[in-house]
Simulated assay, not measured.
Amino acid sequence: MSFGAALKQARESQGLTTQDVALRTKIRGDYLRALEDGNTSLLPERTFARSYLQRYARELSLDPAPLLADFDRSVPASAEMTQSLRGPAARPGPRAPGRGLSPALLAGVATGVIVLAAGGYYALSALRPAPAPAVVTPAVTPEPTPAPVATVRLSVSSVPAGARVYLDNRDLGVTPVRSFPVDARRNAQLRVEAAGRAPLKETVDLSRSRNLRAQLRPTGQNSALVDLNAARAARPAPTPATGTVTPGGSTTPTTTTPAAPPAVAPTPAATPAQAVNVTFSGASWTRVTDAAGRVLYQGTPPAGTVKGFPKGVTIRTGNAGAVKVAVNGAAPAPLGQAGQVVTRTF
């Protein structure tokens, strides 16, 4: 079997292509195919071709010696190369003094050096690891920390009691609403409504906690909003006593009755119509319906919210441990365990 056929058979038995071998040995694919076909006319100089054959055989785990011998029989060395490798022929007579090395020997030495340098270069190229790609870490821009939002407390009562309270279209429940936590803001739309009464719509300043009372007058009249804290601060101090001089020279003391404070209707005590108070200690979706099935409230109020409802309501909540119910002024009790879905009628 020729050296080319042996190379091709070994490569195919290992399931390799000439391209695979070219990547491993750093030898051009057309040179590998020329070695397998025995087409020496396509190969480079004989010295390089023998080096490629030897490297190809070792890559396929073959003994390169018999393959090189077959190659030498196919491509014999030229007479000049053989003479240069063996040395100058013996000539009779004394050697001329000062004679240098023959050009053929110098060419052979130079060729050997080139072959060794090329082999070393390819070996180093195969062993040198590929450079790792540079990893570029993008600069991380810290996100600005949002300013905290202040919370204030809003209390709303009404005359008559039991009116529905809305703040910016959010249902806060029925009056009295006590210390409801809301975000501080300058302009908030407050709406208080009751059946048979003129609705109250006002823009209120919630930059601080407020205690407000809605005077809901019959339909056709204007309802009014009273700031209870401002009304208390505006009450006048009592006027000191003064005297009146009589013709006899005596002074008759007189007492000035202090002006009566502005009439403020007292907040009515809780009546049986608002006998069920619900306190939310955490987030919990809740729906409250009356005996007729009408929805009185539905939503997830913030923690700390207190809502009042009449007796006979049905409460359904998705987190019973965060909802406490007080009936007729009794101590509030949780509807159930945390995360428990409960439906109860009071």
Rank of each mutant, 00 (worst) to 15 (best):
S209A: 07
L225I: 14
A259W: 00
P238D: 09
P261V: 06
T219A: 13
P261W: 00
T252A: 10
A237R: 10
A241E: 08
P238R: 06
T251M: 11
T244W: 01
A230C: 07
V192D: 06
R235D: 10
A241W: 01
S223V: 04
S207M: 05
A259Y: 02
A214N: 05
R210G: 05
V204P: 07
V245P: 05
A214S: 12
G243F: 07
P199L: 00
A214Y: 12
T254K: 08
P236Q: 09
A231P: 01
P262M: 10
P253S: 10
T203H: 06
V245I: 13
R235N: 05
L225K: 04
R197M: 09
P236F: 09
T242K: 11
A234W: 08
L216Q: 03
V245T: 11
Q221L: 10
L200Q: 05
G249N: 06
G196C: 05
A233P: 12
A259C: 02
R217M: 08
L212S: 03
D205W: 12
T219V: 12
G196M: 06
A233R: 14
R208A: 15
V264T: 12
G220R: 02
A233Q: 15
E193I: 11
A195F: 08
T219P: 07
R213K: 15
L216E: 07
R197P: 03
A237E: 06
A237F: 03
L228K: 02
A194D: 02
P236L: 13
A234S: 15
T244F: 08
R208N: 10
A194L: 14
T254Y: 01
R232G: 06
D205C: 06
S223A: 07
T219R: 11
G249L: 03
V192T: 11
T257V: 15
R191Y: 04
T256I: 15
R191V: 08
P253G: 13
E202W: 02
S250W: 10
P240G: 07
P261N: 10
S209V: 04
T252H: 05
L206I: 10
Q221C: 00
T257Q: 15
R232F: 10
L225Q: 04
S223T: 07
N211P: 01
A224V: 11
T255A: 13
L190T: 06
D205S: 07
T246Y: 01
T251E: 04
N229D: 15
A195C: 00
P258M: 11
L190I: 11
K201Q: 12
A237N: 02
S209E: 08
L212N: 05
T257C: 02
S250G: 09
P218K: 02
V204S: 07
P238L: 05
R235H: 02
T242I: 07
R210D: 07
N229L: 14
P199F: 09
N229V: 13
L216I: 07
A233F: 12
R232I: 02
N211V: 15
P199D: 03
A241R: 04
P238H: 01
R217W: 02
A194S: 10
R197V: 00
P240Y: 11
P199G: 04
G248F: 11
A230F: 09
P199C: 00
V226E: 15
T203E: 12
P236D: 12
A237S: 12
R191A: 09
G243Q: 14
L200H: 11
Q221V: 02
L190G: 05
